[in-house]
Structure formats: C-alpha cells, structure tokens
Write a protein that binds this DNA or RNA. Structure first.
Lengths: 341, 341
DNA sequence: TATTAGCACTCTAGGAGTGCGAGTGCTAAT
DNA sequence: ATTAGCACTCGCACTCCTAGAGTGCTAATA
C-alpha cells in the first residue's frame, strides 16, 4: 500500500504527536506544529482518507484521530527511521555491561534487563538461553553425602545447572568416578534433545553393575534438563504507571498479570523467528497482550540464536528508539558473549 | 491498656466489619449486625472514647470509624483469635508441598510461595536461606576448559551455588585435584563468616606452587558467597487490585514498586528477630511500606532459624487467617526440610 | 481541479448546584 | 448508666450546563 508523500507525512506527524502527548490529534495541531505548508482543511480530508484505509481511528465524533494497530504497523514498516544510540551511549552501555569481577552470564543478563528498562522507560524482559538448544560441555557428579549426589551440567552456552539426586542406595567415591567417566564420555557434545532412549540404553550396557544408581541418576538429570526453558528476568514493571493509557485500573491489572506469569512471558519471548520482531496490539496472540506492544530481539551465544531481549509497553511506544536500543544491545551482548565464553 | 469488655467487643466488631467491607463503620451497623444488645447511642459514646484513645479514626465528620494502626495493633495483640487451617487443609498443604520427583529446595520454596498467595489472596514472599548463615558441606572445583573452572559449593542448609572462575593460566586435572583436596579439608564445616584472612593465608601455605591459581579461585569464591543474601520469591503481586484501598493509582504504584525492589524485600524479610512478626502500617521502617501490613514467619533448615515466609497486604488484612496460615506453613516447611536434608 | 476559508454541528470534559443518606454529638428522658 | 430523639455535618451521586475542541460540508479561490 503506497499512500503518497503527503499522506505519509500526515500519518507520521499524527503518530509522532500521539506518541508524545497521548491525546487524540486534530487537524489544527498538525497544521500548526508539523506541516505549516498545508491547511487544516486539507489535512482533514487526508485524515478522513487515512481513516477509511484503517490507519487511523476516532475515539468519538469531534475528537481528533488516534493511530490504529494497522497505522502503527504501517509506521513501523514504512515510515519511521530507527533511532540508534549515539556512539557515546554505545560505549557507556558496553562499559556498564562488561565491567564485572565475576563473569557470570546471569549477572550480565540481569544488568542488561535493568539497563533496558532504564534507557527506554518501559518494562524490559530478558530470556536466558534454554537448555534445549545447548550442548553439554561437561557433566560432573559430586558426592555430598552417601546418598546425596549433585550433578553439575555445564553447556556450551554457558548455562550451569545443578541437579540434586537422592540415590536409592549408598554410593562410593569409586562408583561416582566410574559414573562420571562414562557419563562424560557418552553425553558430552550432545544436546538435550539428542538424549533419548537409545543413548540411555547404550550407556546402561556399560554399567550393569551400577544399574540401579544409574537409572536414578540419569532419569533425574534428564527430567531436570528437559523442563528447562530458560529463565525470564524483568525490570521496570512499574513504569507503565507513567503512561496514561494505564490509568485505568483494569488495564493496569491485566498488564501486570500478564507480566507476572513468567511461563507465559517465556513462551512469548522464546518463539523468536526473526532477529528483531515488533508485535503491535492485536498482532499479539495472547488476549492479555492485545493492548500493548512487544518488541524483541535475539542475541547469540556460541553462535546460536538463543536468547531474547525485549520491551513490553503501550502501543503508543517510541518504536524508533526501542528498536534502535534493542538492536544495539543485542549486538553488544552477542559480542560480549563471543569474547567471554 | 485494658479497655473493658464492652469496648473490646465494639472494637472487635468494628475491625471485623471494616476488614470485610472496607467501608467506615457506623454505630448503627454495629448495633444491628454485631451487638444487638447495645443501642447505637451507647456505641457512639464508646466509639468516641476509642477515638480519644487513638484506636479509631474518622475519615471526616459524619463518616463512620476506621481502625488506626494502633487499633489494629491492639486487635492483633489482645483481641483476635488466630484461625489455624483445619487438619484437612493442613494435610492438603503437606501433600502439595511434599510430592515432588526432584527434591530441590528451590522447588519447594516456589510452591510454598504460590500456595501462600493462593490461600490468603494477598501477595506472598519467601526468602531462601542466606549463604552467610550456612556451613560449607562440600566444595568441589570442576574443570570445564583449560582456563574455566566452576566451583560448586553445597551447604548444610541445602543451598547449591556455582561460581565461575577464569584462571589466570591453564590448569591441569592434577592441579584441580590437589586444590580440591586442600580446599575441602580446610573449608568444609566453616561458615562464610569464618573464612577470613587467617584461614586463607593458612591454606596458602599448603599451595605455594599453585599460589597464582589459588588466589584467583579463593577470591572469586569468597566474593561470590559473601554477597549472597538469599533470594526472594514473590507470588500474587496483582492480588492487591482486589482491594479497594489500592484503587488509587499512586498507592498501587507505591505498593508495586516496593515489591519490585528485591533487595529491599530481602532486607525486610531477613531481619527476623521473632518467630512470627506482624508489622502494621507506620510500624514498618520503610516509607513505601507505611500503608500496608507485613506478616512474616521463619522456618528452619538444619536446625537454624534461617528462612522467612511472609505476606504483604493492606493494613485491612485478615490477620487471624494470615497469622494462622503462616504459623502452620512455617512449621510444615521446617518439618519437610528436617526429613529431606 | 486541488486547496482553503467559513460555518454549523457534535461530542466530551469539567464545573456548579442540589438533594439524599449516612453518621455524628448533644440533650433530655428513662 | 443507657437510650431515644433531634439538629447538624459532610460527602456522594446526580443533573444540568457551558466551553472548547474537532469534524464534515459547502462555497469560494488560485
């Protein structure tokens, strides 16, 4: 759909103004503030056209116009220019994320989340890599007591996971050593999805004498890894109160209850087809998310497109800025993880 | 302060009614609904007395009375009878918390949090044990790559913590083995607070040949454990929207921003002097918590009074129920951890 | 033919005015 | 000591009204 230059300019102006003021925009405002070369009357005619096309909406007769979901979509796809952070800002971001005495992925992720919400003033969410897409880099059993064993799994994506195992009978150091050797030999390099019955029964052949302990160990490890979908970190959840569209109690509640449900969020943020993805209002699958917008970008660990960072906010969102920030920060993250793993 | 039987009954009735309805309570209501043997006029006189004593407040002339913080305090200390869950409910709670294939403390804690908010309809918070109060039960280094080592610390309180260490030069398996042996021998049984310069330099004598790697390892482990204050889990954060006192946007915001700050919450919940503690309104140190009430109880792991479960809600809280539930569940938790560690 | 000025019309937000109901405190009677 | 009665207070909800913002249409203009 090509609108023609003037309609684009008008739509652009309306969306800019609405994003800034949260008030329906009238023709006079546009003519005065943005397009002094066109008269209000002309703008009115164009606005009526844009409304017919479904890009604008009128809350009621005699109110100004408000962008529709479709209008925002057109704006994001065809009109807006992404506002990237300045080189200075980029440097500052890198500085804030990188300096850390203890180089844990978790820490960097948490800081990123905070940074995102600070910079954008919206709610930010970051999803850590899921076990499922990772390969096992190391698997070690640690004997804590005679019947308590902890399995420590380290992946190529830097996740470290502990699994507590209560063994059905006492284990000795030498049993642990033996199990360790065989588990390492057989499982290192595999992904969770690769571990199936065939692999397990294959290993079982090697350890008939420990079969009882082995079964306990492997099933617990397997279950525990399988159910790992990555973790969600959130920041700036109360930022929505700054936006008048959430003055309404029910809206605020529905937004916050969406955000409270970590499984739901993990789901929303995990299905990352594109490197950057903007979902506006009704484009969101979930009913609860139908009056907000979600922008998400992926970052890489171990060359895999594996984690997601994102922003949840009102549809009236500063898309150019949010998209710019997310793109930049996802690149920075990828870069940091490249150098640190 | 002894009020006399009638005043107590009246205060009791007012608080009950106010907790139920959230509306200022008038003398007529009391006479009709609760104390049919006394006339409204008498109740009015008594109410005036109670107001003089600072136990009741009047939002404005010609409105009913509302309990003051002091009034709630008197109610909690002198009047209310704790409502414990029924034996059937206790059984159900035990059932819900205990059945778990993978016996991780984390899981039980998360379920407890959810359960608390489901049962009480308020916001619940659970604080996991802090490293600081725990003793090291096992400390193992795992070599992941030539320069990446993971230290796994297991405590008597069941916390498992991973510390990622980048060594300044390559380490061999035998170095790891040696370090492991010495660290275990020297540190197991100590608490984090016990680890000081003297202990560290003592160990250092044993490993002059590895001093470089050792320094890296010990400092990272020490820093990482030292900063661990336990983690906060929250559930039911949107429950406050059910309570009309939070219809007001600013109140809701201030409540939610209190809740958003995990460090603050951890602080509030960590200073547990008593086994059960009720803080009403102004009794809370933090300004942001001045218009809500916090009830918390401690649970034990390894015979140490170490974790906290709690409820945050409006001052108009169902104290008898909340106190009963918290007392019961903290006992159940202690019991579960006794049998499982 | 595209643009614009003018104008009648529509609709909402917000303020003023009003009556009702709930509740109180005081006084006098029981 | 308790209670009935009554005058008084105050907030809430309701209605009414106006001002203001914005539209769409029509006729004039470039």
């Amino acid at each position: 759909m090509d609108l023609g230059e003037r309609k684009k300019r008008i739509l652009h102006a309306i969306i800019n103004d609405y994003i800034e003021t949260a008030e329906p925009v009238g023709s006079r405002t546009i003519a005065k503030k943005y397009l002094t070369d066109i008269s209000p009357a002309t703008i009115r005619n164009e606005m009526a056209d844009l409304e017919d096309l479904g890009l604008l909406e009128q809350p009621h007769t005699s109110a100004g116009r408000v962008p529709s979901d479709k209008g925002y979509r057109y704006y994001v796809d065809e009109i807006m220019e992404v506002k990237y952070p300045t080189p200075q800002e980029i440097e500052r971001i890198k500085y804030m994320l990188q300096i850390t005495t203890i180089n844990e992925i978790d820490k960097i992720i948490k800081r990123t989340t905070k940074l995102l919400s600070d910079v954008t003033k919206y709610t930010s969410a970051v999803l850590t890599p899921s076990m499922k897409k990772s390969f096992i880099k190391s698997l070690q059993l640690i004997k804590v007591t005679d019947t308590d064993v902890v399995a420590v799994v380290v992946t190529d994506t830097g996740i470290i996971k502990n699994v507590v195992i209560k063994t059905p009978k006492k284990v000795t150091d030498s049993t642990i050593l033996k199990l360790n050797n065989i588990l390492n030999e057989k499982l290192v390099g595999l992904s969770i999805n690769d571990i199936g019955l065939s692999v397990i029964s294959d290993i079982q052949n090697y350890m008939i004498e420990y079969s009882e302990i082995f079964s306990a160990v492997i099933s617990v490890i397997y279950e525990s890894l399988k159910e790992d979908n990555g973790e969600i970190y959130l920041e700036g959840t109360t930022n929505i109160f700054d936006y008048p569209e959430y003055d309404d109690k029910d809206r605020a509640r529905s937004f916050l209850s969406l955000i409270e449900n970590k499984e739901l969020l993990a789901h929303i943020f995990s299905e990352s087809s594109d490197n950057l993805c903007v979902s506006i209002g009704c484009e969101n699958e979930l009913d609860k998310a139908k009056d907000c917008s979600i922008v998400k970008a992926t970052y890489n660990i171990a060359d895999k497109n594996i984690g997601t960072i994102g922003i949840i906010g009102p549809k009236r969102m500063d898309y150019p800025k949010v998209v710019g920030v997310l793109k930049s920060i996802s690149c920075i993250l990828t870069e940091i993880f490249e150098n640190n793993l």
